[in-house]
C-alpha cells in the first residue's frame, strides 16, 4: 500500500538546538500510528511538522523532506491553508472556540466559504454523528461549547476536524487531560474513525498505544529508535532501549 506520509532525513532545529535528528518513517494510509516516547523527545514536534503548524514558531528551521501523497510538503508553492484542510489536528487540551456548538463545527466549512445554512447543518450533523456526540448535543446546538464536559469538548474538537473531511487526523495526546471514562470513549471513537481516516496519535500512555494503534514508533531524544507493528514493538522489541521504556525502566 502507498504510504500517505513519507519522511526522509527530517531534521528540525529551534534556533541552534536540534530537536529532530534525521528521521525516516513511512506512515500508512487508513492505519493508526502511535508515537510514543518520554517527554521532550520530539514526538509532538514531529506531529506538528505534518501539517506545518511549526511554521508559526519563529526560529524554527527544517531540513530533509516530507512527502504527503507523493507531493513535497514543504514545497515553496504548497498552499498551507489547503494542506491543513486535508490534515486536521486535535490538541492535547480541548480547545473549543467560545462560540455555540454549531458554530464551532461550522467554523472550518465557513472559512472555506460555505454559507448555506442547509449545507452547514448537514455537515454539522454528520460530523457530530461520526464523533459520537450527536445524541448528547442535538438539542442544544446553539448553546456555548464551553458548557460541555472535558470529554465532550474533546469529541467536539474531533468532530470539528472531521467536518473538514480530512484525509489524516493528527492527535496530540488527545486524552491526557481527560478522565478514564472519557478516555475510553475517545479511544472507541478513534477505532471507529480508522475506517475512513489515517490517524497519527501521540500518546504518553503505552497502554493506549497498544490498545488503539496498528503501528508504533518509539521516539527518544529526537530520534526514532524503533518503528514497527504495534504487536512487535510491545512483544518483541528489537532495541534494548525500547524494551527498557515499555517495561517501565525509564521515562
Amino acid at each position: 500500500m502507498e504510504p500517505i506520509f513519507q519522511v526522509e532525513h527530517l531534521s528540525l532545529y529551534y534556533g541552534e538546538k536540534q530537536v529532530l535528528k534525521d528521521l525516516n518513517i513511512e506512515i500508512k494510509k487508513n492505519k493508526i500510528t502511535a508515537l510514543i516516547g518520554p517527554s521532550g523527545c520530539g514526538k509532538s514536534t514531529f506531529l506538528r511538522c505534518l501539517n506545518r503548524m511549526n511554521d508559526l514558531i519563529e526560529n524554527c528551521r527544517i531540513e530533509g523532506n516530507i512527502y504527503f501523497e507523493q507531493d513535497d510538503l514543504y514545497h515553496a508553492k504548497r498552499d498551507v491553508v489547503e494542506l491543513r484542510t486535508k490534515v486536521g489536528m486535535v490538541f492535547q487540551k480541548p480547545n473549543p472556540f467560545p462560540m455555540s456548538i454549531f458554530d464551532n463545527i461550522a467554523y472550518g466549512p465557513r472559512c472555506q466559504g460555505i454559507k448555506k445554512k442547509q449545507v452547514l447543518m448537514e455537515i454539522v450533523e454528520q460530523a457530530l454523528k461520526k464523533a459520537a456526540l450527536w445524541d448528547e448535543v442535538k438539542d442544544r446546538l446553539q448553546d456555548s461549547a464551553m458548557g460541555l464536559s472535558g470529554g465532550q469538548q474533546q469529541r467536539l474538537c474531533i468532530a470539528r476536524a472531521i467536518a473538514m473531511e480530512p484525509e489524516v487526523i493528527l492527535m496530540d495526546e488527545p486524552t491526557s487531560a481527560l478522565d478514564p471514562i472519557a478516555t475510553a470513549k475517545i479511544e472507541e471513537l478513534i477505532e471507529q474513525l480508522k475506517k475512513s481516516y489515517t490517524i497519527i496519535i501521540v500518546t504518553h500512555s503505552m497502554q493506549q498505544a497498544s490498545r488503539v494503534s496498528d503501528e508504533t514508533a518509539f521516539f527518544l531524544l529526537g530520534e526514532i529508535v524503533e518503528f514497527d507493528a504495534t504487536s512487535n514493538i510491545f512483544q518483541h522489541p528489537k532495541d534494548k532501549r525500547t524494551e527498557d521504556y515499555i517495561t517501565g525502566r525509564f521515562g
Binding site: N51, M53, L56, V81, E82, R84, T85, G88, M89, F91, K93, N95, P96, F97, P98, M99, Y107, G108, C111, Q112, C157, R160, A161, M164
Partner: peptide
C-alpha cells in the same frame, strides 16, 4: 487569549486573517 485557540483555528484550514477576525477578536 490562549495560543491553543489560534492553533485550533489554523489547524482547521483558516487563514491567519480569518483566525484573527473570527476567533481572536471576538474573544
Amino acid at each position: 487569549i490562549p495560543q491553543s485557540l489560534r492553533d485550533g483555528s489554523l489547524s482547521l484550514g483558516a487563514t491567519s486573517s480569518q483566525t484573527i477576525f473570527k476567533v481572536v477578536l471576538p474573544c
